[in-house]
Design a protein around this nucleic acid. Sequence first.
RNA 1: GCCCGGGUGGUGGAAUGGCAGACACAAAGGACUCAAAAUCCUUCGAUCGCAAGGUCAUGCGGGUUCGACUCCCGCCCCGGGCACCA
Length: 1012
Amino acid sequence: MATEETQGKPEERGQIVPDHRYDPKPIEAKWQKKWREDKVFAAHDDSPKPKYYQLETFPYPSAAGLHMGHPKGFTAEDIHARYMRMKGSEVLYTIGWDAFGLPTENYAIKVGKSPKEVAKENIENFRRQVQFFGFSYDWDREINTSSPEYYKWTQWLFIQLFKKNLAYQREAKVNWCPNDQTVLANEQVVDGKCERCGAEVEERDMVQWFLRITDYADRLLADLKGLDWPAATVKRQEDWIGRSLGTEIDFPLDLNYRYVLLHGYLGSREKHFFPWLRNELTRRGISFICPELPGPDDPKESEQVQFVLQNIQFNENTVLYGHSLGAVVALKVLEKLDHPIAGLVLSGGFLEPKFKDHPRPFENNFNWNFNFEKIKSNVGFIRTLSDLNDTSIPVEQGRLIHEKLDGRLYETVAQVPHFHGQEEPAVLETLLPMITVFTTRPDTIFGATYLVLAPEHNAIKAMWPRITNQMEVQHYIDTALKKTERMRQEEAREKTGVEIKGVMAINPTNQEAIPLWIADYVLIGYGTGAIMAVPAHDGRDLDFARKFHLPVRPVVSPKKDMPVYEVKDAYTGKGYLINSPKFNGMDSDAAKWEIEKLVGGRGREHFKLRDWSVSRQRYWGAPIPMIHCEKCGLVPVPDDQLPVLLPDDVDYRPKGKPPLASSPSFMNVKCPNCDGPATRDAETLDTFVDSSWYYLRYADPQNPNAIFDKEKARHWLPVDLYVIGAEHTVLHLLYARFITKFLHDEGYLAFTEPFLKLRHQGLLMGTDGQKMSKSKGNVVNPDEVVGKFGADVVRLDLMFMGPFEDAHPWDEKGIAGVERFVARVARYGDRVLGVPTGTTDAAIATRAAGVPHPPAGYAADGRGLLHKTIKKVGEDIDGFKFNTAISSLMILMNDLESGPPLPRSEFAMFVKIIHPFTPHLAQELWARLGNASYLDFEPWPQYDESLITERTITLVLQVNGKVRDAVTADATLTEDAAKALALANEKVKASLAGKTPQKVIYVDKKLVNIVA
RNA sequence: GCCCGGGUGGUGGAAUGGCAGACACAAAGGACUCAAAAUCCUUCGAUCGCAAGGUCAUGCGGGUUCGACUCCCGCCCCGGGCACCA
């Protein structure tokens, strides 16, 4: 029931209430226009103020227009930007358009326009919509990734990567969307379907451009430390990079070959890697012959081949190895043999005397024609090892051997060019019959009861002649390789596999012979493509072992001296070794090192991170600035010919070939190197490339001569604050970090991490609680909402919904609260302004006499709350707690309204602290208070500590932890006085009911708890 | 399966070891009005009680503590991420 004093017309309570409602429209339009015309928010390169660079995810301007999720993040940024300006920073805050990409192209095809036209329209629409919100952008720094002025530098960046061998082409299985007719990144495939159009994704082999982000894996991981990023985001980046530290261990196969090792020209059994190699073979108990060939300084074919044939026995167990000219000798020997041998291994070999450095004297002593058919028929397996950095033998020679002889070609980088190092592990690896596995748990090696190879593993071919169940194995491999990712996923975790019969592996610790299996749960792309299976201590291995009835041997017990007899679930934790002769009882961590040492394991780190596929077979992107010349190979477009403009005379509709290929005027060019006929690369770059560097361009957005001016970049960057949707926590950030590190290494940037502080905005969902999407029809159009309520109200509503990083459904019901708040602030402003200038506080108080708020307490209380609020709002903006900041502003307003109007000087402080949230209203009130300045450059008010300090406190009195009373006491209250006060309290006494207090707990100026 | 979040009134949420539910929305009652809108006032977790007041209550079950939404252990549910990475 309302009391007599509080009822009645507001006017009767001494308040001045204008009878009009606050109409934001003309006021918001007025200030937005002024801000733009006066370039109020321009960021000045030469400002003496400390710089502050705020970045927001530049939007993808889709045909659907802005949706309410965009302004949620933008509003938070704008609040922060305006706050930082008031705190004295020179703020760089701007916007741009991530305008290339599939959705625009697809939409253009649908409506029969060009993507360029569509993008232009979309950007104009977005710009218009964004401007309604009054965000304080420096519009002179606006960028657009689809403009030639921008993508010139995207192309330039690609060329720099290419020049450093960080951009390369290779054939790769790609996710192909049959509907969009393009390649998708793994991340764009969701549940086996195209993220954009929902079509079932197929797998295809294509030659693709990749960026070698894996070269930066360790740095991308290490540099995450020290960033002010949400912990979950750091974790997800770490998981994506996925480093595991482990060891590579060789499991010899029971194929007891005998080796014949042939050295090359100027070589001998004592030179280069031969002594080391012989030692390694001896150490493994492998028999070999390594002859000194006659005339190493002046080799002659007949002499050397005859020598080998006469002195060495060859049978089906022999593996013939030849290095360099020794490879030629080996081939000639095989031509002459009349029975087959087990295998042929060549390193640094050649078929033609075409040397890169200088001619050799033996060139005329050999016959450079080979009987390849004879050679092939005389040998079981052929492996060719080629050094990519060979200084004398061109890499083409290795490929030529492979072309003529088939077999397996291994291209690698030798320790010293042409395998002239003291140790060349690649040679040994190519030679030996063994399986190298990668494991993070060498301590469990005694529990390895079988090995598993990925279906694509090379070793299968090498041991092929020995396999007794070839049909079965072949069938399994064929089916496994036919499966797409999608099919593998659908099969869930059901294990499949086949045993390789006829070959066994040897456990290097105890010489136990264990079987070899092939299974597709082992991936060729990770580690070595082979594992030692320890079913007792790995869930996947256990599943497999159970399905195929393979032995399960526990070798780690969780408790010391407690052997495990039965394995229920795989135990993957640490413990103490059992069933491991010589290691029993040892701590599993310690055993890792001991066993690694024992078996000659090589410590390795492996990453899950894969190279970044950037080729797109579509039109609407930056053309890859490369030229294919028959003579010169891949040639980058020279800088002075950039940008490579997107041609207009193409058919955009996807036909399986890149649209650019349909434009002869685009495709046919002269080679910049040799002036001969050449063709352009017809693909375009993934839009993630565009967005991997846009934050750098904002520092110097119009520079026609460089990607950016180094000094300007040094001034503004790195980004101080980046607000980004939680959905972008992995890819975009990883790519941007990679590009930043690359440009740092190239000397363009002085820092290695682009984004110092990162905050996420929670998703704004449709009214149905579902993610907003056009197909669900739940997209909220900001035009309508802003038109109805005004920008200030919508901004407040978006921020007041709850914690910024939480997801919320859009709900127009709640907006009434902030709408009322804005109207009340406006009305209160009218009250303040209704008081003639120069009126003293006392006069205001007199005028306010009779209102319930006691005039005597007004100055202290009202001001105290004002100053507390100044403090609170500042802290909350720093901490991105906008909801509680607004709440505290409401509390203050509620209090102010119930009293007489504040003096203008104090009301001005209130206007300043609401300014970041409702800049139009605040600026209007500021102007009405007689100020000509812009609030962004008014200093944030200082709060007065003495006014905040409480003179009285509320002391809570508890008995046995239950609240019995709360009393007001002087802030100077001592502990003893507080305890005495509590014990004397009537309610406390009643609650104690005569019991004697055992203990009295005192929390300073807060609480007394009596335990009885 | 594993890894992150999260679970508080009819609703959004506040409180991070010390009065649970700030601030709002919705709802109900009232004032003003011819009426409505707007505005203003009051009530508003559940339950017992005429009242004073009591009891219960932050997903469930335990624990630590004088005191737990908050810390620890186990479980349930919801959201997100990864998905055979050895």
